[in-house]
Amino acid sequence: MKKKDGILILVLLAAAAVFFLGYRLWNRKTPEEVVVYVGEQEYARFSVKENREFLIETEKGSNLLILKDGTADVTEASCPDKICVHQSPISQTGETIVCMPNRVIVTIEQASQKRIMNES
């Protein structure tokens, strides 16, 4: 291995660490809501405190979302690749689970402005 290759590897790993920390700092808001999108449309929105099962049904297929103890996890999917099922549960703001074939996105957000205004 050339010395230059080693430097490239170190630089890329350092960049990954910087991006990771940056993303975490940027999203250091309290996780409040689990939001489900299908394509660009918002499909459902729950408080992270809820414990429930929810079936996401789209034209292309379905995914089962489990909300438990502040985490969100997809445990069943109609698609063949099951990437979303294998992914670990998410609990931090900005974390995302995606089912590509069904175009389903599950992400954790801070409560939306609109909702905060409605409640106050």
């Binding site: 291995m1 590897i9 890329l12 790993l13 990771f20 995606v98």
Partner: peptide, 30 residues
């Protein structure tokens, strides 16, 4: 994937994929 699902929120995966690509690429390269 970002083009297919039209969402930038996927970039959340980027740091992990960058690190993983580097390690896997290094092993395959050696």
């Amino acid at each position: 994937a970002v083009l297919v699902v039209h969402t930038g929120s996927l970039m959340y995966y980027f740091p992990a994929l960058l690190a993983a690509g580097t390690v896997a690429g290094a092993l395959i390269g050696l």
